[in-house]
């Protein structure tokens, strides 16, 4: 494991913890898209099917379990927690899941490495992760005014994606036969989706003002 991969995993973990912390302590999920969180839960559930078949390392297994448990807990909090669910703004969070899930699934059926259930689910999870942030970005655009924790959550997710790209570049030059087009292209698409957000995030940080997205 290289430093970029580890830093990427840690920012990913931090993003989830920031979100859980926000929900747990403030008892509010204002500004958080339930649609995006449900898509992430689906991403992890379909990607980590190999928990049952392959053992890679203790680190790998533990991280997978953490991402599974945390993503489903976040969904549970927003949907069922008696206080948190009241702060969920259903009318603003209108993105339809199947607009993203269906094309990703069809694409995974056509473009994959191997036509097996596990491999197709894994590929589907990569495609879906690439676009799962869209409902969240749409919600941010709509509400415009973003609280610090939500801004940090999206920033950490973007940092995680950027670090994974550096990890792939590093692995490409240090490991033989490390060529993974499906992972790279979906990862690149995912990172590019954050570019616009990053631009406004850094501007607000530079000018020391509250983050606001243009309508």
């Amino acid at each position: 494991m290289n430093i970029f991969r580890l830093a990427g995993d840690m920012t990913h973990l931090a993003s989830v913890l920031v979100l859980l912390l926000k929900i747990h302590t403030i008892k509010s999920c204002a500004g958080i898209s339930l649609k995006t969180q449900e898509l992430y839960a689906l991403v992890f559930a379909t990607r980590y099917l190999d928990l049952f078949t392959d053992y890679i390392s203790l680190y790998n297994t533990l991280m997978k379990l953490i991402f599974l448990v945390s993503s489903f807990s976040i969904v549970w909090y927003i949907r069922h927690h008696k206080i948190v669910r009241r702060s969920y703004d259903k009318d603003q969070d209108t993105f339809r899941h199947y607009f993203l899930v269906l094309p990703c699934f069809l694409l995974a059926l056509v473009i994959n490495e191997k036509f097996t259930v596990k491999e197709i689910m894994w590929t589907f999870s990569l495609y879906l992760e690439a676009v799962a942030i869209l409902p969240q970005l749409v919600l941010l655009q709509r509400t415009r005014n973003i609280d610090n924790l939500t801004g940090q959550y999206v920033f950490l997710l973007g940092a995680y994606r950027s670090l994974y790209i550096l990890n792939w570049i590093y692995r490409y030059f240090t490991e033989p036969h490390y060529v993974h087009w499906i992972t790279w292209i979906s990862g690149l698409v995912q990172t590019l989706l954050y570019a616009d957000f990053f631009y406004y995030y850094f501007q607000s940080w530079k000018n020391n003002v509250k983050l606001e997205l243009p309508a």
């Binding site: 991969r5 890679i56 991280m63």
Partner: peptide
């Protein structure tokens, strides 16, 4: 054991 591409990543 040889893993399929990128499967050791999260």
């Amino acid at each position: 054991k040889e893993l399929p591409q990128g499967h050791d990543e999260l």
